[in-house]
Computed example of a mutant assay.
Amino acid sequence: MLEGELVRLRALEPEDADKIYGWVHDPEVGRWMVNDYPRSRAQIRKRCEERPVNNYELVVLGIETKAEGELIGIVDLRDADPRVGNAELDIYIGDAEYRGGGYGTDAMRVMCRYGFDAMRLHMITLWVVAGNERARHVYRKVGFSEDGRHREAFVGEGGRRHDMILMSMLKGELT
């Protein structure tokens, strides 16, 4: 397990499916995410049971509180390319009780440290909806810089389009 000040990152277990099902169907969690079509509890459980083993190309970890051991979110590094040392990061705190308490920031730092140190990445990138200022603030706080804008690339509630912001962090820029 990987540990920070507030969180512990661990591999997901099949037993996590019920929590994930609740998060996937929470409008606040999905507001700024590209979501698939609705999935049943059984589909999510099957996906958790059949999840491939974490490897260099895709590392998916559950975020749990260090104090209570409560699963509160998910973070991943995906599409890692060893030839150039880049990967893309995704994160969300699914449990509303833990949003805004520093858990996401801590999880980001732990996962980025893992990417730079254990995976020997040179750069970690992410995409964020321009209107998601709360997430952008967290990303800047841990060392990400805004690199570019993909205009009207995200379709939100009611079909409203939003710009997407590309952010990146190089090894050595983690704060």
Rank of each mutant, 00 (worst) to 15 (best):
F154H: 04
G172V: 01
S168F: 01
C48E: 15
G94C: 12
E70N: 01
E15T: 14
N35Y: 04
D117G: 01
I63P: 00
G148R: 00
E15K: 10
D95N: 13
R120T: 09
T175P: 13
R160Y: 03
M167Q: 03
R31H: 11
G85C: 10
L71Y: 11
A67N: 02
V75S: 05
C48D: 11
Y114W: 09
Y92S: 10
D36Q: 11
M123Y: 07
H25W: 05
V110P: 01
A130L: 08
L166S: 14
K171S: 11
M33S: 09
K19S: 10
E49L: 03
F144M: 10
Y56P: 10
H162P: 05
A87E: 00
I72C: 03
G102L: 08
W23E: 12
R161L: 15
R134V: 15
V24R: 11
E57Y: 07
V142M: 08
G69R: 02
E68C: 02
A67C: 00
G115F: 07
A17I: 06
I44N: 03
W23L: 08
G104I: 07
E70G: 02
E57G: 03
G4T: 04
T175C: 06
D76Y: 06
D106G: 13
R149H: 07
L77V: 10
H25T: 07
P52I: 06
G101F: 00
W32I: 07
R41T: 01
L121E: 05
W127H: 09
G101C: 08
E50L: 08
E3N: 05
E64C: 11
A17C: 08
G131A: 08
R10P: 06
R47L: 10
D106A: 11
A96P: 04
D117C: 01
E146D: 10
I20L: 15
V60P: 01
E57T: 08
A67R: 15
W23V: 11
M164T: 14
L121I: 01
L174D: 13
R161Y: 05
V129N: 05
L126P: 07
M1T: 10
D26R: 04
A130V: 09
L174S: 12
E15I: 04
E50V: 03
Y92F: 15
G62Q: 12
N35T: 15
L12P: 04
E13P: 00
V142I: 12
M167N: 07
V155F: 02
G4A: 02
E146M: 14
D147M: 10
E97Y: 13
V34L: 13
G158E: 13
P14Q: 03
E152A: 13
A135P: 13
R47D: 13
V53N: 05
W32D: 06
G104F: 02
W32Q: 09
I44Q: 05
H137W: 09
Y139K: 02
D26W: 00
P52N: 06
E146H: 08
K66C: 00
D95W: 01
Y98V: 01
G101W: 05
A87V: 12
R51I: 03
Q43D: 12
N35I: 12
V155C: 12
E157T: 09
E49Q: 11
M108R: 04
V60A: 04
M119W: 03
